[in-house]
Design a protein around this nucleic acid. Structure first.
Lengths: 172, 172
DNA sequence: AATTAAGGTCAACATGGCTGACATAAAACC
DNA sequence: GGTTTTATGTCAGCCATGTTGACCTTAATT
């Protein structure tokens, strides 16, 4: 099975090859999110809640504006989700110490627990795919996905993960 | 397992590596669909319409049930979208010649035109990403995406693209 | 013929995008 | 220091698209 080489070597940009990519992308994304969606449904949440929880967990103390820049949705949409998450006790908002207009966002313990659970199922799926495909494939996978990004996203993505605020939630 | 060279050095399934995959998947999918979404918005359509048009184009004469199996949504959801597409003249329904309960689906010329346009922008994005990443990377990309699929999807995916009906739309 | 099953549609609900209007806090102007 | 402008975030209401439930039509079973 090692010789899957869909492309003997000739041009691999033929229509069929491209359609294969388009379709794989659709199916893979759907299945990739499917398990998490089920967990979320149990809690009466949706994908939007997941994304907020995920990136708040990644960037404790992130502001609504910063989160917006990552998610690329309107602040009104995000606001609705955040209100729900605060309501259910998964997220805490603290007024910014410097700029009191800001709400710094943190996961509560419940939020962190849910985040772990969701990331765990998605991580397991990736771990399996990565393991089966092998290291070289993983590298290629990442390379192609990066190539699919908008220039703007690529710029931002390089910043994500940088803990922007040294974290101080629950400290008190 | 075929003894997969331990990545340069350590295990590569660490949390950070997995999170990178999760995040790339999110951003790439969003950007990948973004351009098509804009075109669709012009026509007062959404992603659901796109998917229907895409797979009908791929499988002329497909039945609603078969399309459902590909899309994995409820038939009620699909029905709404199909009605709209028939209404706007992008899709034609022909009663099945064998089984008169069935509606065989075909793109009209307008539908085919729109499909081409949408596939073209997504194809261009893939062509660029593939070109930049190189053949080996593309192979890895496909391998990993396949690994992310549910077993069920993988089974079905191998069938997609098989022109199931020899096409006879517009034959009259 | 009567029942059961399969293919589709209609209605009503929830999620999560969107835009518009707005409150509050900070910054800029003077 | 008061006024205006700008930035951050919320509330309200619309639209797209997923869901379930009720239903019609046609085919298959008996």
């Amino acid at each position: 099975m090692a010789d899957i080489k869909p492309i003997g070597k000739a041009l691999f940009l033929r229509e069929e090859e491209l359609r294969r990519g388009i379709e794989l992308m659709f199916f893979a994304y759907r299945d990739f999110t499917g398990e998490a969606d089920s967990i979320l449904a149990e809690q009466n949440m949706g994908r939007a809640h997941h994304r907020a929880i995920y990136f708040i967990g990644r960037n404790p103390g992130i502001t609504v504006s910063e989160l917006l820049a990552i998610l690329n949705i309107t602040k009104q949409s995000l606001s609705r989700v955040l209100s729900a998450l605060v309501e259910t006790g998964h997220v805490e908002q603290h007024t910014g110490p410097e700029d009191r207009r800001q709400r710094l966002l943190y996961l509560t313990d419940a939020g962190a627990t849910l985040e772990s659970r969701l990331t765990a199922v998605q991580g397991r799926r990736f771990a399996k795919a990565y393991r089966e495909a092998g290291m070289t494939a993983v590298e290629g996978f990442q390379r192609v996905l990066e190539g699919l990004l908008d220039a703007e996203t690529r710029r931002q993505a390089s910043e994500t993960g940088r803990t922007r605020h040294p974290d101080h939630r629950g400290g008190e």
